[in-house]
Design a protein around this nucleic acid. Structure first.
Length: 487
RNA sequence: CGGGGCGUAGCGCAGCCUGGUAGCGCGCCUGCCUUGGGCGCAGGAGGCCCCCGGUUCAAAUCCGGGCGCCCCGACCA
């Protein structure tokens, strides 16, 4: 329950986030360092995210599977870059049933290796391809510095894995799934994201190319909200994933993988949240509408609750996710604050006066205070609510996009970049040289987030184009990239 | 892995310096009263004071050791 006010975002963004997660009852700290318990409200949000993603995965031909948590340690060692990237953060099981294991097992940090192992058995012919799989699971990475949702030792996600006969097909798949994430983020979560390509320094351990969607949080920092990897033939070679092509020749498969995690909940919090608490996009909010009844005595209570239940039934019938707050002992004012903390997009306040007038007060979460309140007739309430929810969804996206654009700067010079990354994104030319990228990181703490696929969309209409020179060394730019401090 | 902070009621903390009956606020329970922006009053329940050892007539408090968590910086979704 929300007893107290949050610090404002301006005061202390990090503490605002920490307290909000606890007070909105999204998650709590587990008894083990760095581990998280996702509470019912947080998990309901995740289920809505899952639902929206899963239907997109199915629509693009993928099937869900379940691979085991435990993987032989030797598997991870078969792909050179993969082992280098992941060994520092592996959890290793050495004892089972009281006996030292002949071969240690690892808790999966991701499943490329064990899937590659199985594919080598399952894939024989070009007729077996493509293989399009996804799994919803949790993975373990022994992080040193943790934060609820953003970085925990164990986190929940989905990992998609596909195998293809040709390079082109695999590359197409990688970009297709990046597109799925982009569509989901923008149209369901109202988070404007920049799809782009990662630098070699930032790409996944074992990938040839990594793409990501990058979002700007409310403090101007970047968050990688989803990734899609073109793995080339790296894992196919390490695990002998081969097929016989039409001409009778053995070929290695081309594979991809792509993932989006509960970290995305962190993005939703930090993009839409305000000083009152969480603000959820209607399309994925566990409750889209909360009804708060108001009454003085038993007689009023009976009348108001009767109407409130009718309203609830009507809205539910129109497929609106609605809850009625019947809790005794909390005043309406208390409930207003509580549901604002928990980010419910629309609140219906219903008291005796409203019942008498056959109307209700609708309060928009995205416009706190009186400004966001309107009277609505009970007669056509579901239609009114649907319209408002759609407006709120659009308003959240528009607000986030405006915020991002106003904090994204076309930084032509290194000084401009330094200034821009203090509280936002710098969009700058880059020569493509890793040493320039490294210097920028050392000197400004900003990393290269991505090379946007759609250069024009970054700065928006009339935003100009990035410099043709590398922001660090002044050599001709091969790319235009986003630089920012990141979570 | 470095730096800092904190472990006392469900939560947030005070008490510790200067050893002597364990306290405050919130929450919880009961009753009354209230309810249109975090109501009020009265009564009540709730404690291995993180753990182990030492000093002492006496330890939440002093000393030694351990464990845990959080926050801030280097690596990562």
């Amino acid at each position: 329950m929300a007893e107290e006010k949050l610090p404002t975002r301006a005061q202390d963004f990090s503490e605002w986030y920490n307290q909000l997660v606890l007070k909105a009852q999204l998650a709590d700290y587990a008894p083990v360092r760095g581990c998280m318990i996702v509470r019912p409200y947080g998990w309901a949000l995740w289920e809505n995210i899952q639902g929206q993603l899963d239907r997109r995965f199915k629509a693009t031909g993928h099937q869900n599977v379940a691979f085991p948590l435990l993987i032989p340690k030797s598997f991870i060692e078969k792909e050179k870059h993969h082992v280098e990237g992941f060994s520092p953060e592996l959890a290793v099981v050495t004892i089972g049933g009281g006996e030292e294991l002949a071969e240690p097992l690892i808790l999966r940090p991701t499943s490329e290796t064990i899937i590659g192992h199985m594919w080598s058995k399952w894939i024989q012919s070009y007729r077996d391809l493509p293989v399009l799989m996804n799994q919803w699971n949790s993975v373990v990475r022994w992080e040193l510095r943790t934060k609820l949702f953003l970085r925990t030792l164990e986190f929940y996600w989905q990992e998609g894995h596909t195998a293809h006969a040709t390079r082109q097909e695999a590359e197409d798949e990688t970009l297709q799934m990046l597109g799925v994430y982009t569509d989901f983020a923008i149209n369901e979560a109202a988070i404007p994201v920049i799809p782009g390509k990662k630098s070699d320094a930032e790409k996944f351990a074992g990938a040839d190319i990594t793409y990501s969607i990058e979002a700007m949080m409310g403090d101007g920092k970047a968050l990688q909200a989803g990734t899609s990897h073109f793995l080339g033939q790296n894992f196919a070679q390490a695990f002998e994933v081969k097929y016989l092509d039409q001409t009778g020749v053995q070929q290695h498969c081309w594979t991809t993988s792509w993932g989006l995690s509960t970290r995305f909940i962190g993005a939703i919090i930090m993009v839409h949240g305000d000083d009152q608490g969480l603000v959820l996009p209607p399309r994925i909010a566990p409750y889209q509408v909360v009804i708060v009844p108001i009454f003085k005595n038993d007689e009023e209570k009976t009348g108001v609750l009767g109407v409130a239940k009718e309203i609830k039934a009507q809205l539910a019938k129109a497929n609106i996710r609605v809850t009625l707050d019947e809790r005794d002992g909390q005043s309406p004012g208390w409930k207003f604050n509580d549901w604002e903390m928990r980010g419910v997009p629309l609140r219906i306040e219903l008291g005796p006066k409203d019942v008498a007038k056959q109307s209700a007060v609708l309060a928009r979460r995205d416009r706190p205070g009186k400004e966001g309140k309107v009277f609505a007739s009970l007669a056509d309430l579901p239609a009114t609510v649907e319209k408002l929810l759609a407006e709120i969804q659009d308003a959240l996206l528009a607000k986030a996009l405006t915020f991002r654009r106003s904090n994204t700067h076309n930084a032509q010079t290194y000084d401009e970049l330094k200034k821009a990354v203090e509280g936002g994104f710098a969009y700058s030319g880059w020569c493509g040289n890793g040493s320039c990228e490294e210097k920028i990181k050392e000197e400004t703490r900003a990393t290269m987030r991505c090379i946007p696929l759609d250069q024009e969309a970054v700065l928006g209409p009339g935003g100009g184009s990035a410099s043709g020179k590398c922001v660090y060394c002044g050599q001709p730019a091969r790319n235009r990239a986003i630089f920012a401090r990141a979570y």
